[in-house]
Design a protein around this nucleic acid. Sequence first.
DNA 1: AGGTGTGAATTATTTCACAGCG
DNA 2: CGCTGTGAAATAATTCACACCT
Lengths: 215, 215
Amino acid sequence: MTEPRTADRRIADSTVRRLSMYLRYLEELDARGRPSASSEELASLSGTTSAQVRKDLSFFGSFGKRGLGYPVHALVIRIREILGLEREWRVAIIGAGKIGVALANYGGFLQRGFHVAGMYDSDPGKIGTSWGAATVRDISHLATDVRGEGIDIAVLAVPATVAQVVVDRVVSAGIRAILNFAPAQLQVPEGVTLKSVNMAMELEGLSFALAHPAP
Amino acid sequence: MTEPRTADRRIADSTVRRLSMYLRYLEELDARGRPSASSEELASLSGTTSAQVRKDLSFFGSFGKRGLGYPVHALVIRIREILGLEREWRVAIIGAGKIGVALANYGGFLQRGFHVAGMYDSDPGKIGTSWGAATVRDISHLATDVRGEGIDIAVLAVPATVAQVVVDRVVSAGIRAILNFAPAQLQVPEGVTLKSVNMAMELEGLSFALAHPAP
DNA sequence: AGGTGTGAATTATTTCACAGCG
DNA sequence: CGCTGTGAAATAATTCACACCT
């Protein structure tokens, strides 16, 4: 799994997640015409502390003006650059079962900047069906499509039992970023980034909290 | 937000997430009739280290046998108890838009142990429609239903713009555990646990990794 | 004054390493 | 032996606090 770096510093995952958050609120402020915002304001919007905001941003440069705060519009542009959002990423949904279909149908799941370039499955009964703007292709075409059309990200929506086999296939097709929806702990080689969305885990976390209320 | 404790120690969120993971693999081993498993084996299945497995479990007791490992079946039962999974939790889906409907239609999103007790919306055009096993009710009935039927968990599937208002309403209806799908940072009072599933954030994390490949 | 940028201090989490039990 | 349980050490992440700029 890749360790992203900027210059020579390793950036923590938690920092990247917060940048995402800051970006969301900065865009909102920008749309309202706000010229600048302090770390304090960004912190309260995104539920963290001002020191955290300043530290997160400082990993990438000095964007603020002392006594004034951060220039909203310029910071939006800068964070989009940092996150690699100036370009559009092409996403393939792997698995045309219920989750895959839900993701393809509901365009808003995949927000702006991420375009569903195709859907893949191995079930002959599903190949050829269309969902949203995508038609399901045989997964054997994946490697060719990655090279031909250029696919950047795979969204894995397959059963947990086959998830590792499928992820191996996705990786050998040349994809280096994967969003996994299967409730399984997948192994990927160095150089491939994997993120998992695991609803079972989140629900069980809530269950734990309900079962162990604070004193 | 509640700080879950067991005896007198505060349990880290990361520990609870790993317990979830261990449980998944232990259930699999149990189904295959495996009598015991070492921390080493559990670690390699769930992508962590043996010391981490032993430490995580040690917060809750001594379940292993030295020289032998952990008794699989007994540990499954014990972790289910720890996570509060011996009982069924009643879940309300708030918001009958695309995400809410997808969650309700696809029962498997909400795994066993979590039962969809109802769906709520404020749009008169949606009230009365049925999805999966649930019929959409007016959100003004929520507080009554929480007290009457007992609802434990709210799954928030509303637009980010109204998410804070809705979460305030959910909290004042008496719900103390919330799974949020809106890409917003919500505030909840002490004693209420909130977890968020934020796909935009995950995708942007992948974008960052692709934009900053390891050297 | 007002607010950033950042080393230093603190707190949280993970890993080490080993005593001790079955 | 083999493998757990756990203090102690190492690492990582967050918060403090203040010099410094505008």
